[in-house]
Design a protein around this nucleic acid. Sequence first.
DNA 1: TGGATATTGGG
DNA 2: CCAATATCC
Length: 452
Amino acid sequence: MAENAPAILWFRRDLRLGDHAALLTAAKSASRVLALYVLDDALLKPSGAPRTAFLSGCLRALDEQLSGRLLVVHGDPVRAVPEVAEAIGAGSVHVHADTAPYGRRRDQEVAAELGRRGVDWVETGSSYAITPGRVTKPDGEPYRVFTPFFRAWLRHGWPSPADTSASTVDWIDPDGLSGVDIPDAPDLGSMTLPEPGERAALAAWDHFRDEALPDYDNRRDRPDLDASSRLSPYLRWGCVHPRTLLAELGDEDEAFRAELAWREFHADVLWHRPETARRNYNTKFDAMKLETGPAARSAFEAWCQGRTGYPVVDAGMRQLLAEGWMHNRVRMIVASFLVKDLHLPWWWGARHFMRHLVDGDLASNQLNWQWVAGSGTDAAPYFRIFNPTTQGEKFDPQGDYVRRYVPELAGLSGKTVHQPWKAGPPDGYPAPVVEHAHERRVALERYGELSP
DNA sequence: TGGATATTGGG
DNA sequence: CCAATATCC
Protein backbone atom coordinates (compact mmCIF):
# COMPACT_ATOMS: atom_id res chain seq x y z
CA MET A 1 0.00 0.00 0.00
CA ALA A 2 1.06 3.58 -0.57
CA GLU A 3 3.07 5.41 2.07
CA ASN A 4 1.45 8.18 4.07
CA ALA A 5 -2.10 7.06 3.53
CA PRO A 6 -4.34 6.93 6.56
CA ALA A 7 -5.33 3.39 7.34
CA ILE A 8 -8.44 1.94 8.77
CA LEU A 9 -7.89 -1.36 10.45
CA TRP A 10 -11.15 -3.07 10.04
CA PHE A 11 -12.11 -5.98 12.19
CA ARG A 12 -15.42 -7.47 11.43
CA ARG A 13 -17.67 -9.31 13.83
CA ASP A 14 -14.90 -11.70 14.89
CA LEU A 15 -12.72 -9.30 16.79
CA ARG A 16 -9.10 -10.22 17.16
CA LEU A 17 -8.10 -7.84 19.86
CA GLY A 18 -4.84 -9.62 20.44
CA ASP A 19 -3.78 -9.97 16.85
CA HIS A 20 -1.15 -7.30 17.00
CA ALA A 21 0.57 -8.72 13.94
CA ALA A 22 -2.13 -7.44 11.63
CA LEU A 23 -2.26 -4.10 13.40
CA LEU A 24 1.46 -3.57 13.27
CA THR A 25 1.95 -4.68 9.70
CA ALA A 26 -0.68 -2.25 8.56
CA ALA A 27 0.45 0.52 10.87
CA LYS A 28 4.03 0.55 9.61
CA SER A 29 3.05 1.77 6.16
CA ALA A 30 0.44 4.29 7.23
CA SER A 31 0.79 7.89 8.30
CA ARG A 32 -2.00 7.64 10.81
CA VAL A 33 -3.81 4.68 12.22
CA LEU A 34 -7.37 4.46 13.28
CA ALA A 35 -8.47 1.26 14.89
CA LEU A 36 -11.96 0.58 13.79
CA TYR A 37 -13.95 -2.28 15.19
CA VAL A 38 -17.19 -2.90 13.40
CA LEU A 39 -19.60 -4.92 15.41
CA ASP A 40 -22.07 -6.96 13.47
CA ASP A 41 -25.66 -6.24 14.44
CA ALA A 42 -26.03 -9.81 15.57
CA LEU A 43 -23.80 -9.07 18.53
CA LEU A 44 -26.02 -6.33 19.82
CA LYS A 45 -29.44 -7.90 19.50
CA PRO A 46 -29.82 -10.15 22.52
CA SER A 47 -29.37 -7.43 25.09
CA GLY A 48 -28.78 -9.82 27.95
CA ALA A 49 -26.49 -12.20 26.11
CA PRO A 50 -23.30 -12.99 27.96
CA ARG A 51 -21.16 -13.03 24.84
CA THR A 52 -21.95 -9.36 24.42
CA ALA A 53 -20.83 -8.76 27.98
CA PHE A 54 -17.59 -10.58 27.43
CA LEU A 55 -17.00 -8.60 24.26
CA SER A 56 -17.60 -5.33 26.08
CA GLY A 57 -15.05 -6.46 28.63
CA CYS A 58 -12.56 -7.23 25.89
CA LEU A 59 -13.04 -3.81 24.33
CA ARG A 60 -12.61 -2.08 27.66
CA ALA A 61 -9.48 -4.06 28.39
CA LEU A 62 -8.01 -3.08 25.04
CA ASP A 63 -9.12 0.51 25.38
CA GLU A 64 -7.26 0.66 28.66
CA GLN A 65 -4.08 -0.56 27.00
CA LEU A 66 -4.51 2.04 24.25
CA SER A 67 -4.98 4.96 26.64
CA GLY A 68 -8.59 5.62 25.77
CA ARG A 69 -8.08 5.92 22.03
CA LEU A 70 -10.11 3.02 20.90
CA LEU A 71 -12.78 3.73 18.35
CA VAL A 72 -15.71 1.40 18.07
CA VAL A 73 -18.31 1.61 15.35
CA HIS A 74 -21.41 -0.53 15.37
CA GLY A 75 -23.45 -1.65 12.45
CA ASP A 76 -23.34 -2.95 8.95
CA PRO A 77 -19.73 -2.87 7.72
CA VAL A 78 -20.80 -2.11 4.18
CA ARG A 79 -22.20 1.21 5.36
CA ALA A 80 -20.05 1.91 8.38
CA VAL A 81 -16.61 1.77 6.81
CA PRO A 82 -17.20 4.40 4.12
CA GLU A 83 -18.99 6.63 6.62
CA VAL A 84 -15.94 6.62 8.85
CA ALA A 85 -13.66 7.15 5.88
CA GLU A 86 -15.63 10.27 5.09
CA ALA A 87 -15.67 11.42 8.70
CA ILE A 88 -11.89 11.41 9.04
CA GLY A 89 -11.59 13.44 5.87
CA ALA A 90 -9.80 10.98 3.67
CA GLY A 91 -10.86 10.54 0.10
CA SER A 92 -9.01 7.29 -0.10
CA VAL A 93 -8.10 5.02 2.77
CA HIS A 94 -6.74 1.56 3.00
CA VAL A 95 -8.87 -1.00 4.72
CA HIS A 96 -7.33 -3.99 6.37
CA ALA A 97 -9.72 -6.80 7.00
CA ASP A 98 -8.82 -9.45 9.49
CA THR A 99 -11.43 -12.01 8.71
CA ALA A 100 -12.35 -15.55 9.35
CA PRO A 101 -12.29 -17.66 6.20
CA TYR A 102 -16.03 -18.02 6.27
CA GLY A 103 -16.37 -14.27 6.25
CA ARG A 104 -14.65 -13.88 2.89
CA ARG A 105 -17.82 -13.94 0.88
CA ARG A 106 -19.23 -11.05 2.89
CA ASP A 107 -15.86 -9.31 2.62
CA GLN A 108 -16.11 -9.44 -1.13
CA GLU A 109 -19.42 -7.60 -0.91
CA VAL A 110 -17.77 -5.01 1.30
CA ALA A 111 -14.84 -4.69 -1.08
CA ALA A 112 -17.16 -4.08 -4.00
CA GLU A 113 -19.01 -1.38 -2.07
CA LEU A 114 -15.75 0.27 -1.04
CA GLY A 115 -14.53 0.17 -4.63
CA ARG A 116 -17.59 2.10 -5.76
CA ARG A 117 -16.72 4.78 -3.19
CA GLY A 118 -13.09 5.02 -4.20
CA VAL A 119 -11.72 3.32 -1.11
CA ASP A 120 -8.79 0.97 -1.53
CA TRP A 121 -9.04 -2.54 -0.16
CA VAL A 122 -6.14 -4.38 1.37
CA GLU A 123 -6.60 -7.70 3.04
CA THR A 124 -4.42 -9.01 5.84
CA GLY A 125 -4.31 -12.31 7.65
CA SER A 126 -6.73 -14.02 9.93
CA SER A 127 -6.33 -15.76 13.23
CA TYR A 128 -8.15 -18.68 11.70
CA ALA A 129 -5.65 -18.97 8.91
CA ILE A 130 -2.89 -20.18 11.19
CA THR A 131 -1.13 -21.51 8.13
CA PRO A 132 -0.09 -19.21 5.30
CA GLY A 133 -2.35 -20.38 2.52
CA ARG A 134 -5.09 -22.92 2.67
CA VAL A 135 -4.47 -26.53 3.59
CA THR A 136 -5.92 -28.60 0.76
CA LYS A 137 -5.62 -32.09 -0.65
CA PRO A 138 -2.94 -32.57 -3.32
CA ASP A 139 -5.61 -32.15 -5.99
CA GLY A 140 -6.62 -28.80 -4.51
CA GLU A 141 -9.89 -30.05 -3.01
CA PRO A 142 -10.74 -29.22 0.61
CA TYR A 143 -10.40 -31.97 3.20
CA ARG A 144 -13.62 -33.54 4.37
CA VAL A 145 -12.11 -35.77 7.06
CA PHE A 146 -10.33 -34.32 10.06
CA THR A 147 -7.42 -36.73 10.55
CA PRO A 148 -5.86 -36.31 7.09
CA PHE A 149 -6.48 -32.56 7.41
CA PHE A 150 -4.67 -32.55 10.74
CA ARG A 151 -1.66 -34.39 9.34
CA ALA A 152 -1.44 -32.09 6.32
CA TRP A 153 -1.84 -29.06 8.60
CA LEU A 154 1.05 -30.20 10.79
CA ARG A 155 3.19 -30.84 7.69
CA HIS A 156 2.26 -27.45 6.25
CA GLY A 157 3.51 -25.55 9.30
CA TRP A 158 2.95 -21.93 10.28
CA PRO A 159 4.93 -18.73 10.98
CA SER A 160 6.04 -17.67 14.44
CA PRO A 161 3.81 -15.14 16.17
CA ALA A 162 4.69 -11.52 15.46
CA ASP A 163 6.92 -9.66 17.88
CA THR A 164 4.68 -7.00 19.33
CA SER A 165 7.14 -5.64 21.86
CA ALA A 166 8.18 -2.62 19.78
CA SER A 167 4.86 -1.08 18.81
CA THR A 168 5.10 2.30 17.10
CA VAL A 169 1.45 2.72 16.29
CA ASP A 170 0.40 6.34 16.46
CA TRP A 171 -3.13 6.21 17.66
CA ILE A 172 -5.29 9.15 16.71
CA ASP A 173 -8.01 10.40 18.94
CA PRO A 174 -11.40 9.69 17.42
CA ASP A 175 -13.10 12.64 19.14
CA GLY A 176 -15.82 14.15 17.06
CA LEU A 177 -16.89 11.04 15.24
CA SER A 178 -20.51 10.09 15.63
CA GLY A 179 -21.82 6.78 16.79
CA VAL A 180 -18.62 6.02 18.63
CA ASP A 181 -18.63 4.29 21.95
CA ILE A 182 -17.97 1.07 23.74
CA PRO A 183 -21.19 -0.76 24.49
CA ASP A 184 -22.16 -1.01 28.13
CA ALA A 185 -22.03 -4.46 29.60
CA PRO A 186 -25.53 -5.76 30.32
CA ASP A 187 -26.57 -6.64 33.84
CA LEU A 188 -25.39 -10.19 34.38
CA GLY A 189 -27.37 -10.97 37.50
CA SER A 190 -25.76 -13.98 39.13
CA MET A 191 -23.71 -14.96 36.10
CA THR A 192 -19.97 -15.43 36.37
CA LEU A 193 -17.90 -14.74 33.28
CA PRO A 194 -14.16 -15.14 32.72
CA GLU A 195 -11.93 -12.09 33.03
CA PRO A 196 -11.80 -10.48 29.57
CA GLY A 197 -8.83 -9.15 27.65
CA GLU A 198 -5.41 -10.14 26.40
CA ARG A 199 -3.72 -10.13 29.80
CA ALA A 200 -6.30 -12.52 31.19
CA ALA A 201 -5.91 -14.72 28.10
CA LEU A 202 -2.17 -15.00 28.60
CA ALA A 203 -2.64 -15.70 32.31
CA ALA A 204 -5.07 -18.51 31.46
CA TRP A 205 -2.53 -19.88 29.00
CA ASP A 206 0.27 -19.82 31.58
CA HIS A 207 -1.90 -21.61 34.10
CA PHE A 208 -3.01 -24.27 31.64
CA ARG A 209 0.43 -24.83 30.13
CA ASP A 210 2.06 -25.33 33.53
CA GLU A 211 -0.70 -27.24 35.33
CA ALA A 212 -2.85 -29.24 32.92
CA LEU A 213 -1.14 -29.44 29.53
CA PRO A 214 1.25 -32.33 30.35
CA ASP A 215 -1.63 -34.70 31.16
CA TYR A 216 -4.18 -33.04 28.86
CA ASP A 217 -4.80 -36.13 26.75
CA ASN A 218 -5.79 -38.20 29.80
CA ARG A 219 -7.71 -35.66 31.81
CA ARG A 220 -9.46 -33.34 29.35
CA ASP A 221 -12.64 -35.44 29.36
CA ARG A 222 -13.20 -34.94 33.09
CA PRO A 223 -15.59 -32.03 33.73
CA ASP A 224 -15.10 -32.39 37.49
CA LEU A 225 -11.40 -31.49 37.20
CA ASP A 226 -9.66 -28.27 36.16
CA ALA A 227 -8.20 -30.08 33.16
CA SER A 228 -9.25 -28.08 30.12
CA SER A 229 -7.56 -24.95 28.83
CA ARG A 230 -10.47 -22.53 29.27
CA LEU A 231 -8.97 -20.62 26.37
CA SER A 232 -11.94 -20.88 24.02
CA PRO A 233 -13.45 -17.45 24.82
CA TYR A 234 -10.09 -15.78 24.27
CA LEU A 235 -9.50 -17.57 20.99
CA ARG A 236 -13.01 -16.84 19.81
CA TRP A 237 -12.67 -13.11 20.52
CA GLY A 238 -9.08 -12.91 19.35
CA CYS A 239 -7.63 -11.98 22.73
CA VAL A 240 -4.84 -14.42 22.01
CA HIS A 241 -3.67 -15.72 18.65
CA PRO A 242 -3.44 -19.49 18.20
CA ARG A 243 0.07 -19.05 16.80
CA THR A 244 1.09 -17.61 20.15
CA LEU A 245 0.05 -20.91 21.73
CA LEU A 246 1.47 -23.11 18.97
CA ALA A 247 4.86 -21.48 19.40
CA GLU A 248 5.10 -23.06 22.85
CA LEU A 249 3.71 -26.46 21.88
CA GLY A 250 5.66 -29.47 20.70
CA ASP A 251 5.01 -32.88 19.20
CA GLU A 252 4.17 -34.22 22.66
CA ASP A 253 1.21 -31.84 22.80
CA GLU A 254 -0.59 -33.47 19.91
CA ALA A 255 -3.97 -33.66 21.66
CA PHE A 256 -4.12 -29.92 22.32
CA ARG A 257 -2.75 -29.04 18.89
CA ALA A 258 -5.52 -31.16 17.42
CA GLU A 259 -8.09 -29.02 19.24
CA LEU A 260 -6.65 -25.90 17.60
CA ALA A 261 -6.69 -27.73 14.27
CA TRP A 262 -10.37 -28.57 14.72
CA ARG A 263 -11.13 -24.82 14.79
CA GLU A 264 -9.36 -24.36 11.48
CA PHE A 265 -10.88 -27.47 9.97
CA HIS A 266 -14.41 -26.36 10.77
CA ALA A 267 -13.74 -22.80 9.63
CA ASP A 268 -12.48 -24.25 6.35
CA VAL A 269 -15.53 -26.48 5.97
CA LEU A 270 -17.87 -23.54 6.57
CA TRP A 271 -15.97 -21.38 4.14
CA HIS A 272 -16.50 -23.94 1.40
CA ARG A 273 -20.09 -24.69 2.45
CA PRO A 274 -21.47 -21.52 4.12
CA GLU A 275 -25.02 -22.85 4.04
CA THR A 276 -24.05 -25.56 6.55
CA ALA A 277 -24.38 -22.98 9.34
CA ARG A 278 -28.09 -23.65 9.08
CA ARG A 279 -28.56 -26.77 6.97
CA ASN A 280 -27.33 -30.33 7.00
CA TYR A 281 -23.89 -30.77 5.48
CA ASN A 282 -25.00 -34.24 4.43
CA THR A 283 -28.34 -33.53 2.77
CA LYS A 284 -29.45 -37.12 3.16
CA PHE A 285 -30.32 -36.08 6.73
CA ASP A 286 -32.95 -33.67 5.37
CA ALA A 287 -35.29 -36.65 5.37
CA MET A 288 -34.74 -37.38 9.08
CA LYS A 289 -37.99 -37.47 11.04
CA LEU A 290 -37.84 -34.79 13.75
CA GLU A 291 -40.09 -33.66 16.58
CA THR A 292 -41.23 -30.02 16.27
CA GLY A 293 -44.70 -29.80 17.82
CA PRO A 294 -45.86 -28.50 21.23
CA ALA A 295 -44.49 -31.55 23.06
CA ALA A 296 -41.13 -30.97 21.38
CA ARG A 297 -41.14 -27.32 22.44
CA SER A 298 -41.80 -28.39 25.98
CA ALA A 299 -39.01 -30.99 25.95
CA PHE A 300 -36.69 -28.38 24.46
CA GLU A 301 -37.57 -25.98 27.26
CA ALA A 302 -36.73 -28.65 29.86
CA TRP A 303 -33.39 -29.22 28.12
CA CYS A 304 -32.62 -25.47 28.03
CA GLN A 305 -33.39 -25.07 31.73
CA GLY A 306 -31.47 -28.16 32.81
CA ARG A 307 -34.54 -30.05 33.98
CA THR A 308 -34.42 -33.26 31.95
CA GLY A 309 -34.02 -35.54 34.96
CA TYR A 310 -30.65 -36.80 33.69
CA PRO A 311 -28.10 -35.33 36.12
CA VAL A 312 -25.07 -34.82 33.88
CA VAL A 313 -27.26 -33.28 31.15
CA ASP A 314 -28.86 -30.90 33.63
CA ALA A 315 -25.53 -30.00 35.20
CA GLY A 316 -24.14 -29.07 31.79
CA MET A 317 -27.14 -27.00 30.76
CA ARG A 318 -27.06 -25.14 34.06
CA GLN A 319 -23.36 -24.52 33.79
CA LEU A 320 -24.07 -22.94 30.40
CA LEU A 321 -26.65 -20.58 31.92
CA ALA A 322 -24.45 -19.74 34.90
CA GLU A 323 -21.09 -19.29 33.17
CA GLY A 324 -21.69 -18.98 29.42
CA TRP A 325 -19.42 -21.99 29.09
CA MET A 326 -19.71 -25.75 29.25
CA HIS A 327 -17.09 -28.48 29.44
CA ASN A 328 -16.49 -30.03 26.03
CA ARG A 329 -17.31 -33.61 27.02
CA VAL A 330 -20.58 -32.40 28.53
CA ARG A 331 -21.38 -30.44 25.35
CA MET A 332 -21.23 -33.73 23.47
CA ILE A 333 -23.45 -35.42 26.05
CA VAL A 334 -26.17 -32.73 26.10
CA ALA A 335 -26.07 -32.45 22.30
CA SER A 336 -26.44 -36.20 21.90
CA PHE A 337 -29.37 -36.06 24.30
CA LEU A 338 -31.15 -33.33 22.34
CA VAL A 339 -30.63 -35.04 19.01
CA LYS A 340 -30.94 -38.72 19.85
CA ASP A 341 -33.10 -38.85 22.97
CA LEU A 342 -35.43 -35.90 22.26
CA HIS A 343 -35.25 -36.19 18.43
CA LEU A 344 -35.15 -32.40 18.07
CA PRO A 345 -33.49 -30.49 15.21
CA TRP A 346 -29.80 -29.96 15.93
CA TRP A 347 -30.13 -26.29 14.99
CA TRP A 348 -32.45 -25.67 17.94
CA GLY A 349 -29.65 -26.74 20.24
CA ALA A 350 -26.99 -24.93 18.24
CA ARG A 351 -28.97 -21.68 18.43
CA HIS A 352 -29.37 -21.99 22.21
CA PHE A 353 -25.62 -22.57 22.51
CA MET A 354 -24.82 -19.53 20.36
CA ARG A 355 -27.09 -17.35 22.48
CA HIS A 356 -25.43 -18.31 25.72
CA LEU A 357 -21.86 -19.39 25.03
CA VAL A 358 -19.19 -16.82 25.66
CA ASP A 359 -16.98 -18.75 23.23
CA GLY A 360 -19.74 -19.36 20.68
CA ASP A 361 -18.14 -19.56 17.25
CA LEU A 362 -20.35 -20.09 14.22
CA ALA A 363 -18.11 -22.60 12.47
CA SER A 364 -17.07 -24.66 15.49
CA ASN A 365 -20.49 -24.62 17.10
CA GLN A 366 -22.66 -25.45 14.14
CA LEU A 367 -20.36 -28.09 12.68
CA ASN A 368 -19.72 -29.77 16.01
CA TRP A 369 -23.49 -30.00 16.44
CA GLN A 370 -23.65 -31.59 13.02
CA TRP A 371 -20.86 -33.93 14.05
CA VAL A 372 -23.02 -35.15 16.93
CA ALA A 373 -26.17 -35.32 14.81
CA GLY A 374 -24.33 -37.41 12.23
CA SER A 375 -25.10 -34.95 9.44
CA GLY A 376 -21.73 -33.25 9.44
CA THR A 377 -18.45 -33.79 7.70
CA ASP A 378 -16.46 -36.63 9.25
CA ALA A 379 -19.39 -37.05 11.63
CA ALA A 380 -19.90 -39.49 14.45
CA PRO A 381 -21.55 -42.62 13.06
CA TYR A 382 -25.31 -42.58 13.53
CA PHE A 383 -25.23 -45.59 15.84
CA ARG A 384 -22.97 -43.84 18.35
CA ILE A 385 -25.55 -42.83 20.94
CA PHE A 386 -24.40 -41.64 24.34
CA ASN A 387 -26.01 -43.13 27.41
CA PRO A 388 -26.30 -40.06 29.65
CA THR A 389 -26.09 -42.12 32.83
CA THR A 390 -23.04 -44.14 31.76
CA GLN A 391 -21.30 -41.02 30.47
CA GLY A 392 -21.90 -39.30 33.78
CA GLU A 393 -20.52 -42.21 35.78
CA LYS A 394 -17.52 -42.56 33.51
CA PHE A 395 -16.43 -38.93 33.28
CA ASP A 396 -17.73 -37.58 36.60
CA PRO A 397 -16.94 -40.66 38.70
CA GLN A 398 -17.40 -39.02 42.10
CA GLY A 399 -20.38 -36.94 41.00
CA ASP A 400 -18.64 -33.69 41.97
CA TYR A 401 -19.50 -31.96 38.70
CA VAL A 402 -23.21 -32.76 39.01
CA ARG A 403 -23.41 -31.62 42.63
CA ARG A 404 -21.66 -28.36 41.74
CA TYR A 405 -24.41 -27.31 39.33
CA VAL A 406 -27.52 -29.17 40.49
CA PRO A 407 -28.22 -28.17 44.09
CA GLU A 408 -31.25 -30.47 44.35
CA LEU A 409 -28.84 -33.40 44.12
CA ALA A 410 -26.24 -32.06 46.52
CA GLY A 411 -27.47 -34.43 49.22
CA LEU A 412 -26.64 -37.56 47.23
CA SER A 413 -23.13 -38.86 47.80
CA GLY A 414 -20.65 -40.26 45.32
CA LYS A 415 -21.77 -41.63 42.01
CA THR A 416 -25.34 -42.21 43.25
CA VAL A 417 -26.12 -38.67 41.98
CA HIS A 418 -26.12 -40.09 38.48
CA GLN A 419 -29.19 -42.23 39.20
CA PRO A 420 -31.36 -40.15 41.55
CA TRP A 421 -34.46 -42.15 40.62
CA LYS A 422 -33.02 -45.15 42.48
CA ALA A 423 -32.69 -43.38 45.82
CA GLY A 424 -36.22 -42.04 45.77
CA PRO A 425 -37.08 -38.73 44.09
CA PRO A 426 -35.06 -35.86 45.63
CA ASP A 427 -37.11 -32.79 46.44
CA GLY A 428 -37.71 -30.58 43.42
CA TYR A 429 -35.67 -32.64 40.98
CA PRO A 430 -37.62 -33.88 37.96
CA ALA A 431 -38.06 -37.50 36.94
CA PRO A 432 -36.42 -38.34 33.60
CA VAL A 433 -38.39 -36.66 30.78
CA VAL A 434 -37.80 -39.66 28.54
CA GLU A 435 -36.55 -43.22 28.96
CA HIS A 436 -33.16 -43.45 27.34
CA ALA A 437 -33.33 -47.13 26.35
CA HIS A 438 -36.58 -46.51 24.47
CA GLU A 439 -35.48 -43.29 22.77
CA ARG A 440 -32.26 -44.95 21.68
CA ARG A 441 -34.28 -47.55 19.78
CA VAL A 442 -36.46 -44.82 18.25
CA ALA A 443 -33.38 -42.94 17.07
CA LEU A 444 -31.87 -46.02 15.47
CA GLU A 445 -35.17 -46.76 13.78
CA ARG A 446 -35.36 -43.26 12.31
CA TYR A 447 -31.77 -43.39 11.10
CA GLY A 448 -32.58 -46.71 9.50
CA GLU A 449 -35.32 -45.03 7.47
CA LEU A 450 -32.83 -42.73 5.73
CA SER A 451 -31.69 -43.71 2.28
CA PRO A 452 -28.28 -45.38 2.34
C1' DT B 1 -14.43 -38.51 21.18
C1' DG B 2 -20.17 -45.76 22.24
C1' DG B 3 -23.33 -48.96 23.82
C1' DA B 4 -26.11 -53.14 24.07
C1' DT B 5 -25.93 -57.77 23.67
C1' DA B 6 -24.15 -62.38 22.72
C1' DT B 7 -20.30 -65.33 23.24
C1' DT B 8 -16.20 -67.14 25.35
C1' DG B 9 -12.99 -68.61 28.85
C1' DG B 10 -11.29 -68.61 33.38
C1' DG B 11 -12.56 -68.65 38.11
C1' DC C 1 -20.32 -65.61 38.10
C1' DC C 2 -17.55 -61.89 35.77
C1' DA C 3 -14.24 -59.84 32.53
C1' DA C 4 -12.62 -59.75 28.07
C1' DT C 5 -13.93 -60.07 23.33
C1' DA C 6 -16.87 -59.91 19.14
C1' DT C 7 -20.48 -58.06 16.62
C1' DC C 8 -24.17 -55.30 15.39
C1' DC C 9 -26.60 -51.06 15.45
